[in-house]
Amino acid sequence: MLLVIDMQQRLLPHIDAGETLSRHCHALVRAAGLLGVPVLATEQNPRGLGASVEGLFVPNQRVIEKHTFDATLNDAFVAALPSPGDGVIVVAGAEAHVCVLLTTLGLLRLDYRVELVADAIGSRDPANRAIALTRAAQEGARLTTTETAIFNWLGTCRRPEFREALGLIK
């Protein structure tokens, strides 16, 4: 499963390297859709931070409104997750040191295997992002990149979707 946290219209302009973050999240969401990887997204207080960035998600991808920083404290979010042990939850989004980190820690407490996409998470302050990556890794999350996640989902260059998926990261 791909989990995209709080990629919201009013938040993204304040994120350091927000354009790169947005490009990587778009690539992950498109690749997940192409390859049949389920996508789940969250929006933190959408009345205050706005909806998700326009065009990031398609209608069959679920977006859950939340008001807790750790999404695992939201019953609807937990109900939308697969069973622990049913693969890896690949996490991307913003902000790295708040909702991304706290949700990652919550997922780990619930016995999920988590891969945090280091080049697809962001914070307003790069130092906060760096500390969040370190903390997540110390707590048991594995770090990955957008390209690695997509190639992992592909598994082989012989898949019919290979060329299209490759175009998402070039």
Rank of each mutant, 00 (worst) to 15 (best):
E19K: 00
E19W: 00
E19C: 00
S22A: 12
S22R: 11
R23I: 11
R23Y: 14
R23C: 14
R23F: 15
R23T: 12
R23Q: 11
H24E: 15
C25N: 14
C25F: 12
H26C: 08
H26W: 14
A27H: 11
A27F: 07
L28N: 09
L28C: 04
L28F: 10
V29L: 06
R30M: 05
A31N: 15
A31K: 13
A32P: 10
G33A: 05
L34K: 06
L34A: 04
G36F: 01
G36S: 01
G36I: 03
V37P: 06
P38R: 02
V39K: 09
V39E: 01
L40K: 12
E43W: 10
E43M: 11
E43Y: 12
E43N: 14
E43G: 10
Q44S: 03
Q44R: 14
Q44N: 09
Q44C: 05
Q44D: 00
N45S: 13
N45L: 13
N45M: 11
P46K: 14
P46C: 13
P46H: 12
R47V: 11
R47Q: 15
R47G: 14
R47H: 13
G48R: 15
G48L: 06
L49W: 00
L49A: 09
L49Q: 06
G50P: 00
G50I: 03
G50K: 15
S52N: 07
S52K: 10
S52T: 08
S52H: 08
S52G: 01
V53T: 01
V53D: 02
V53G: 02
E54Y: 05
G55W: 11
G55C: 05
